[in-house]
Structures are given as structure tokens and as C-alpha cells.
Design a protein around this nucleic acid. Sequence first.
DNA 1: ATAGAACCTTGACCCAAATCAAAGAGAGCC
DNA 2: GGCTCTCTTTGATTTGGGTCAAGGTTCTAT
Lengths: 248, 248
Amino acid sequence: MTLEDSLPASPSCADCPIRHRAVCSRCDERELGQLEEIKYYRSFEAGQMVIWSGDKMDFVASVVSGIATLTQTLEDGRTQMVGLLLPSDFVGRPGREFAAYNISATTDLLMCCFRKKPFEEMMFRTPHIAQRLLEMTLDELDSAREWMLLLGRKTAREKIASLLAIVAQRDAAVKLRTQRGRMIFDLPLTREAMADYLGLTLETVSRQISALKRDGIIELEGKRHVTVPDFDRLLNEAGDDADGGMLT
Amino acid sequence: MTLEDSLPASPSCADCPIRHRAVCSRCDERELGQLEEIKYYRSFEAGQMVIWSGDKMDFVASVVSGIATLTQTLEDGRTQMVGLLLPSDFVGRPGREFAAYNISATTDLLMCCFRKKPFEEMMFRTPHIAQRLLEMTLDELDSAREWMLLLGRKTAREKIASLLAIVAQRDAAVKLRTQRGRMIFDLPLTREAMADYLGLTLETVSRQISALKRDGIIELEGKRHVTVPDFDRLLNEAGDDADGGMLT
DNA sequence: ATAGAACCTTGACCCAAATCAAAGAGAGCC
DNA sequence: GGCTCTCTTTGATTTGGGTCAAGGTTCTAT
């Protein structure tokens, strides 16, 4: 079911949309040329599975566009999202043969893949790649720890507010909009995906979103289109006054 | 209050107990010599604070002996442990000026510190250090994600069983004992610290430990000394049949 | 010995979120 | 237009774990 068609308009790294943020961002022209030789694109439709935990994974990749999720499950079916992969995020672990998580495409997804072996070899002799990967991994670790605080100690309402704040901030960063005041964005996740991310049930997610709407913290148009009239009020509901907890 | 006394018997890297696991484990003789020049030891007593979140942190370090914790708090006091630092674990982030977490000594603690600037410079020209740090960071990220599953989806009983299984396994690894059957070890954490790690209250921790004792899954001698008569039964209580979820 | 201070256990009660259940809203399709 | 499928909302009820409160255990200091 993996679609190899509808490949990117831009097979050249030079005008790649994630050129300046991805694992290759520190590479010079020569290094980029080498990567160009071992890379290939794969695209997935919304809802498709990229890989199952435990499956052999012979590539690593960068998300070029779209959103993917990393999830873990207990064998009775309880599932927890452990990562949200956005454009420029890196997938897979050099040196690891089998996937440690389920990876699935939440929206239509385009990934820039590298076969694992050549990538590892290149990483070994290209400090620019290893350096950037370290930096990205440290950022992810910080995000994961932020999320541990949310999962362990926040109330359902605070969890929802935190998620909305993070999505809003990220969206604003992409669109280069102001960080304060009115914000408008689309939720890239279903209620169920949000529940899996926040350690809640989908009913609780739905109820808390309704509650935030009722209290005027957010306005909804359809199920996914959100307007935040006063971002500071939303942050206040998130529990951690400071900044709602950067992700990425 | 930071004690600089009772320094290690072994100021030489050659016979350092964490030589083969720490961030320096891939270094050759020459590199080790360079590290030797910029390193210094600091020791802390059980209960002491190593650093407060937000404080200037002009060093990075390896835990040589003892246990430290990383915690995050919401301003109303709710706290969540986001990392448990054991011998050989690395503390601090190159390139970051201020501490992102509270770090405190759970037991008496000895750390091998490097001033941040010289360490960063050395890391820049020493791939062996950067490589190892990347590997360790990826391991920590896996642990953090394992913990997200626990925090988001496990019951109180499963959380306690998971923690006991992890402590038992780690202890067995150090002592080179068998992984199956009877296991005996000491809990290095207070009930409150366990609660902060597991996203529970200390009362719930206490109750669930009592329940596991009542059900014969564990035996207690005093508050901290634990005997697990049948490790597989404990793993079964942890929810994730497979292996109780490796940490480190 | 005795006093205090941590730390831990247990009980009673309560509440936030889960569970169970039903129905509404859209989107795509014939 | 009506059908089906997926996603979402809302209500009723239950329950796991939190909160509040009272003692119990150890350990250290005096």
C-alpha cells in the first residue's frame, strides 16, 4: 500500500522545504551531494501505517511534509503516543535494526529516506550530521520530559489547554504570526489521537474541548478549526504559566 | 553546602568505575588525558540539591556513584520526576547555559564534572565523545518514551510493579545475578520520590506496595529491602509482558 | 531512655476521569 | 436524496486514585 508515486516537485536538496532544519541542515554543498545520492522519497496517505513496532526498519528518514505519530501499546490495546513528528523531524535510530514504535501517517506524509547502512557510514565520517542529530535528539528529550510532566501531573483540562497552546505556537512559528493575542489554526489530530497523546479517553478530550469552548477560551468552527481569542488566557489554563512548554 | 571534600580514591580515569560506560567510554589514552585536565570532582550528601532549574549551570558531569534525580514542577508545587540518574549517566546539556531541571542527590553522590566551555570545545574536536553522547541521549529518549507509556496508560499497581521490576533488573545487572527467579534488592527511593516518578501520591504508592506484599508478589523487610520470590509474576503485574521495559 | 523529626501506613471519604451507552454531524458514494 | 462510515458529542453511572486525617516506625540527637 506504500505509495511511491506523487513524488516531490523538488528532488533537489537545494530547494527542499526542510533544508535548514532537518538532520542535514549543517551540511555543506559537497556533503549534500553525497546525501543526494543515497536518499529517496516515500509518501503515505493519511491514516496509513509507516511501520509497525518490531518490524525490520532498514531506513532512517526526515519528515518533509505532513504529520506522523510514534505510538507504543500495551498488549491489551491501551496506546500512548510518544512522539509527534512534524516536518524536519527525524525518524529512526542509527544502529538499530528494528522499529521500536509504531509510526503512522496522521495526514498525507512525505518522507525523505536514507538507507540505514549508507547513512550510518556517512554519519560516521560527517560530523555535521552527527552534531545536528545530537542537537535534535536533545531537543526531543526535552520535549519528552515536558510531556512526562503533563502526563504525570496535569489535569484533563490543563492537558487539553497545553496541547492547544503547543499546536497554536508551532503554527504561529511557521506562519510567522504574532505569539500573543488572537490565534487561529487547525487541529491536525482526531479526538482519539489527542487522547492517545494526552493519556486520556476520547470522551474526556471531547468534553474538555467543549468546556473550554463554553468558557470562551477557544472558539470552534467545525471540529478542527480553532480560534483562540486570547492566547494568554489559554496559557493560563495550561498550568505552567511560563510558556505552555515549547515543543520542538 | 556543596562539599568538595571526601574526594574519590581514584582521581585517575584509568581506574574509574564508570570508565567503560560514561560519556568518555570511547576515548583513547590521549583523549582521556585531555579530559583529565579539565575534570574535577564534586560530592553531595543525600538530600542535597545539585542545582535548581533556571540556575546558571557552568558545568556538565557524569554520575560516578550514587543516585540523582531530575524533576520538573508546576508553580503550584506539583512535581514530576523526569529522570533518574545512575552511575555513568550524563548530566547537563552542551550549549545550554541554564539548568532546565532541578537536580538533587537522592543518595550520597559523586560527580565527575567538566567546565562547560572546555568540554564543548573538546567535544567539537573529539568525535568519540560526541558519538557516545549521542548514543546515551538516544537511550535516554527511549527510556523517557517508555516512561510516557507508564505515566499515560498504566494503573497504579502496574506503575509500582514496573518500577520494582526496573530497579530489580538494574540491580541484578550490576551484581551479575540471574534475571529470573528470586531477586533481592534495596529501593533507592523514598515513597515520595517513587510517587513523583510514577505520577502518583505517596499514599497510593504505599497502598499499592502493601497490596503487592499482601498478594505475595513481593516481600518486605523494613521499608526498603525487597525480595521478589518470582520475577515473572512481578513482570506480569507490570502490564507489558515482554520485559518490564528496559531502563538504560 | 527520651524527644523529635522524617518517613511510612492505613482508613474514610470524595471527585475527576473512565466506562458504558446513545445519538448527532459530516463526508463520500451510489 | 438517502446510505453508510467515521468522527464527535453528550449523558448516566462507576471507580481508581486523590485528599484529608490519624497513627505507627525508625533513626538521630540529646
